[in-house]
Design a protein around this nucleic acid. Structure first.
Lengths: 130, 130
DNA sequence: TTATTATTGCTAATAGTTATTAATAAGAAA
DNA sequence: TTTCTTATTAATAACTATTAGCAATAATAA
């Protein structure tokens, strides 16, 4: 069933990318990462970014966030927390609450086996309110 | 700021689509709707489906569900409930719990103004477990 | 150092969705 | 009912985000 997993190599590109993701509180998309790595890797390809995001995600080092009608974002903060998506400016914010922690650990999920839980609030952010 | 809204016309296509969405417990994507309307509207265009989904969404009659690395799904059940996404078969299930109701009404969202809340559990569904 | 092969950069391809436009039809007015 | 207005349609093209294919490169083990 499971494929014979090939030994991962710790490439400069992927290492750098994870550090970059860890260093920001934003929730960047693939293109932001690409642009912010070009300084260090002038010949970087966008597909390398996508490929490595997939690897980091499957390793559980990074979380992929999808939101309606927009591109995917990535978050290297894998602690249990929710997100707030502003439909005006399309920014994604962290939201810390006790709910999702309760949710993941206690929820009755209709017989399915939940492994993770994504809670996303949508509305208008503080900045756009004023 | 707000555009002068033009008067909506109640087209057969959109009416039929909403009924179709209401009649199913699946969470279909645009293409499923397209295929299941072809019988009634042989000359139907996929872009008509997308356009009307957008209209229904902005009217609050339909909820759009995004999930990592997959197409958008639509749900005409706009009661407060969560979803379970199976990463094996990519099906989307309804999950009824008290959490999201508490969440939307009580949560402290870091100063942002939440209007809605999407809770998605991810894992392996009952069917795929066996 | 050498050999192995995972990963890269490049390019092309794909999936899903949105934009354009002339023709059609829903609803208002006559 | 008939006529008029214009929102909506079907058809198509375009677009954006993402993935696939492949020869060249470089990370690790021997």
């Amino acid at each position: 069933m499971a494929e014979t997993s090939k030994a991962l190599r710790n490439t400069k590109q992927r290492k750098y990318m994870l550090e970059l993701l860890k260093s920001t509180k934003q929730h960047p998309n693939a293109f932001w990462l690409y642009e912010n790595m070009l300084g260090a890797f002038p010949r970087l390809s966008l597909s390398t970014v996508y490929r490595n995001l997939g690897i980091l995600e499957s390793q559980g080092l990074v979380q992929r966030l999808s939101c309606s009608g927009s591109f995917d974002r990535y978050d290297a903060d894998i602690s249990v927390h929710s997100h707030f998506y502003c439909k005006e400016c399309r920014k994604m914010y962290d939201v810390d609450s006790a709910f999702e922690k309760m949710a993941v650990s206690n929820i009755e999920c209709g017989g399915h086996r939940p492994e993770s839980c994504q809670i996303t609030f949508m509305g208008t952010c503080m900045q756009c309110l004023s």
